[in-house]
C-alpha cells in the first residue's frame, strides 16, 4: 500500500513538473537551471569516466578470455560489445551512477530546505516549490543523463578497445566496427537514458520534499532517494528492455 501511495505521489510530482515547465518555469528559474546543469553534469564527468571506463576494460577482458577458450575468432567481440554498450551498459550504468550522486544531492538539498522551513517560506511567497525547486533540477538531470550516457558509452568502448588491442592484438578497425549497431539500438539506449533522467530527480525530489524532523530526517530522505532512484532505474530498464524487444528487436 505504501509503495502504491509513493508511486501515486511521484506521478503527481512528475505531472506538476511538466505543468510548471509549460508555464515557463525554466525561463524564470534559469539561474538555478544553469547552476544545476553544472552541478549535475560537469561534476559527474569524472565519476562517469572512471565507472564506464573500468566497466569497459573489465567487460572486454572477461569476454575475450571466454571467447578465446571457445573459438579463437575475435572479430565479433568489438561490434557485439558496442551494441551491448549502446543498448544497455551506457544508459543503465550511467543511470545508476547518477541515481547515487545526483539523487542524494537533490534529496539532501531539498530536505535541508524543508527542515529549515525554506519550502514553507516559498509557499508563503506564493511560489510553488515544484516551480522553483523541482523543475530546474528535473530538466538539468534529463539533459545531462542523456549527454553523459553518450559520453560514458564512448569512454567505455574506447577503454575496452585499448584492452582488446593491447592484450589480444585485435585491430582497431575490427573492434570499432558498427556493423551490428542499428538505429533501433541507439533509440533503445536513448529512450532508457531519457526515462532514467526523468525518474531520478522525481524520486529524489519526492524524498527530499517529504523530509520530516531535523538532520536525521535529511539523512533518511537521502538514503530513501538513492534507494528509490536506483530501484526506478532497474525497474525501468526491465520494462524498457521488454518494450524495445517487442518494438524493434524481435526477429532480428
Amino acid at each position: 500500500m505504501g509503495l502504491l501511495i509513493a508511486f501515486r505521489d511521484a506521478l503527481g510530482l512528475f505531472f506538476a513538473t511538466w505543468r510548471w515547465t509549460f508555464r515557463g518555469s525554466l525561463f524564470r528559474q534559469r539561474k538555478v537551471f544553469l547552476r544545476q546543469l553544472h552541478d549535475i553534469g560537469n561534476r559527474s564527468v569524472l565519476f562517469i569516466t572512471v565507472t564506464l571506463g573500468v566497466l569497459g576494460v573489465i567487460s572486454v577482458f572477461q569476454v575475450l578470455l571466454q571467447v578465446e577458450r571457445i573459438l579463437p575468432e575475435f572479430s565479433v567481440v568489438g561490434p557485439a560489445f558496442i551494441q551491448t554498450m549502446v543498448r544497455e551498459f551506457a544508459p543503465t550504468i550511467t543511470g545508476l551512477m547518477i541515481a547515487t550522486r545526483v539523487g542524494s544531492g537533490i534529496a539532501a538539498e531539498l530536505g535541508s530546505m524543508v527542515v529549515t522551513e525554506q519550502v514553507d517560506a516559498l509557499r508563503l511567497c506564493n511560489a510553488d516549490p515544484v516551480d522553483y525547486l523541482v523543475a530546474p533540477r528535473f530538466w538539468a538531470c534529463v539533459l545531462h543523463t542523456v549527454l553523459l550516457t553518450v559520453y560514458g558509452g564512448v569512454v567505455g568502448v574506447c577503454c575496452g578497445a585499448v584492452v582488446a588491442h593491447e592484450v589480444w592484438e585485435i585491430p582497431w578497425t575490427s573492434f570499432f566496427s558498427l556493423r551490428l549497431v542499428e538505429l533501433s539500438d541507439a533509440a533503445s539506449g536513448l529512450m532508457k537514458a531519457t526515462a532514467y533522467g526523468m525518474a531520478i530527480p522525481i524520486a529524489a525530489a519526492q524524498a527530499g520534499l517529504e523530509t520530516t524532523g531535523g538532520s536525521e530526517g535529511v539523512g533518511i530522505a537521502t538514503t530513501r532517494a538513492v534507494v528509490n532512484a536506483s530501484f526506478a532505474v532497474v525497474v525501468l530498464d526491465f520494462l524498457l528492455s521488454g518494450l524495445s524487444f517487442l518494438l524493434w528487436f524481435q526477429g532480428r
Binding site: 529549515t116 522551513e117 514553507d120
Partner: peptide, 11 residues
C-alpha cells in the same frame, strides 16, 4: 510570517 530560522533562499 517571519520564520524562526530566517529562511532566506540561498540561491
Amino acid at each position: 510570517m517571519v520564520f524562526q530560522h530566517s529562511t532566506l533562499f540561498d540561491s
